[in-house]
């Protein structure tokens, strides 16, 4: 998961793209340490729980849950992972440029 996302974020660092995490870990210190260790540089919320905040409001019941939005904020893909996620993002960036 994280190595792949890191690669995606690095590859598209100069494009209008953001990976936005909604994190459900509970221990903030451990969270900070693991982010540093694994090189999580992209923005992420810290919900503190799987049953509060955005995950609760959005009815998230499984992890990871993934939404891919185009530049107009429309949900275009759900639960794409790995290469599928890359392809979805590339396509939406292309649409933007076109």
């Amino acid at each position: 998961m994280i190595p792949h996302e890191k690669e995606l974020v690095e590859r598209l660092s100069d494009r209008p793209f953001t990976l936005l995490g909604i994190n459900s870990d509970s221990d903030p210190d451990r969270f900070r340490a693991q982010c540093a260790e694994l090189g999580v540089t992209w923005p992420s919320t810290f919900e503190g729980s799987t049953r509060e905040g955005v995950p609760l409001a959005w009815g998230v019941t499984y992890w990871p849950t993934i939404y891919v939005l185009d530049h107009e904020g429309v949900i275009r893909f759900k639960d794409v992972r790995g290469e599928e996620m890359d392809a979805a993002v590339d396509r939406l960036l292309e649409e933007m440029g076109g």
């Binding site: 996302e5 909604i22 799987t50 955005v54 992890w63 849950t65 904020g73």
Partner: peptide, 20 residues
């Protein structure tokens, strides 16, 4: 504060995740 609106105009992947 973090909101989705901060990233308006960009392609965004919203990823519900955790280290656990």
């Amino acid at each position: 504060p973090v909101s989705l609106a901060d990233y308006r105009g960009r392609v965004v992947v919203i990823d519900f995740w955790g280290f656990w």
